[in-house]
Design a binder for these strands. Structure first.
Ligand SMILES: [Mn+2]
Ligand SMILES: [Mn+2]
Ligand SMILES: [Mn+2]
Ligand SMILES: [Mn+2]
Lengths: 217, 217
DNA sequence: ATAAATTTTTAGACAAAGCTAAAAATTAAA
DNA sequence: TTTAATTTTTAGCTTTGTCTAAAAATTTAT
């Protein structure tokens, strides 16, 4: 499988986890910053290899084989991110681009030994689940901070947006995975929140809250 | 730089360390198991980018820029090999193919952090030197076991042939980097050797001896 | 239900990197 | 020093993945 094929499969997989339905050509093109015509070409190729179910004009979905391949790529991506953060001491906002390259290294033995070396982590540095060697994923129940109501509290367990800007904002506010966050009050006008992290209080916009996953406590 | 360009540079570098002179198109083609015509195409491209000095029909050599790039690729290859053996517990005959992939990952920060994580090794699992971040190489004086005469002894410090077959043969005979090897006698007819490793004596062909580097003691 | 807007596919081109076959240059042999 | 053998380059073709522009299908609006 080429890097390009792998990137398409991964994109289709990610889009599927957001909207569980047939994925449109345009959605793929937008996410991959490429042209719809290129996507169509690739969908034909992936369909030929039985990695996707594709009927023209009807969108596309992953076959069992395609789903498994996609999960193995995601597994590699996230395990390498754990390696970079835990072992090489990278910050959580620096690892994605490198993992985009490392996820294409082909060696089952390598990834399984890496998994063992890292002590079989179930989540990556951004709180995303890591599929195991069989493709099984441990689902952690979590919700967006923006869904909590006043006086509710939760532990930060993940981020939706993984951009450097957002992650660095969280660093600046000393919000990390594991931080306990309490909703002090909610402004009905713009849905902004006053929250308490540790013993500090701060105001965050709804946009921030809608990109932080918490587990209610 | 593409994977392909990097592989050509690395090959030219390796050939240069063997025969310090202009490298021929055919030599490159043979080593890379490709066609001479493909090599010519690539040499033009590398020359255009000022990575090699190329005059047609006159062979090729690396420019300073090309030499540095080649060394950085070799550095990555060998550091990843150390990682695989020391941290992930791979055998020394299993790591080359994986390192062939990993050497193309682009991130200076990654390779320098890996270097630190591994404690700045100067040699890879096969005894080959690892260029530092500036491209400097610590040369260890070593010679082939086949060059020793009767009664001389040395410590095994490297292998010339790094094929799985050869490395596994050494494993079977319990010869590893660091093993002390003593030449008991040498057969003048075929240059085969009777050697002592640890407290075991064994016979080895000249071909074996000509692929083992030792440091005289 | 028809027209307009949007999405998706097709057709045709291009760059990268490889190949084969033929031509040109160099090197070795007679 | 010619001729023969070898090496290297050129010319032309193929595949992969991309693009633009135009055509076709689908969806939305009137
Ligand atoms: Mn990532
Ligand atoms: Mn991640
Ligand atoms: Mn190697
Ligand atoms: Mn090596």
């Amino acid at each position: 499988m080429t890097f390009s094929e792998e990137n398409y499969l991964k994109t289709i997989y990610h889009l599927t986890t957001l909207l569980d339905s047939e994925i449109s050509t345009n959605a793929i093109a937008e996410k991959m910053e490429t042209k719809a015509s290129s996507v169509t070409d690739m969908l034909k190729k992936l369909s030929e290899k039985n990695l996707v179910n594709y009927k023209k004009y009807q969108g596309v979905s992953l076959t069992d084989k395609g789903l498994h391949s996609a999960k193995m790529i995601v597994r590699k991506h996230r395990l390498w991110e754990v390696f970079l953060v835990d072992k090489l001491d990278f910050a959580w906002d620096e690892v994605h681009d490198i993992a985009e390259q490392l996820e294409h290294i082909k060696s089952e033995k390598l990834i399984n030994k890496l998994d063992e070396f890292l002590n079989f982590p179930t989540e990556d540095p951004h709180g995303d689940p890591i599929p195991n060697a069989e493709g099984m994923i441990v689902k952690v129940e979590k919700q967006l901070l923006s869904e909590l109501t006043e006086k509710q509290a939760g532990v930060c367990v993940g981020v939706k947006d993984t951009s450097s800007e957002f992650l660095q904002y969280l660093d600046k506010q000393e919000i990390a995975l594991g931080s306990k966050i309490e909703v002090m009050s909610k402004e009905s006008f713009d849905l902004s929140l006053k929250i308490k992290v540790g013993n500090k209080e701060l105001m965050i916009s709804n946009k921030i809250a809608a990109n932080l996953f918490v587990k209610k406590v």
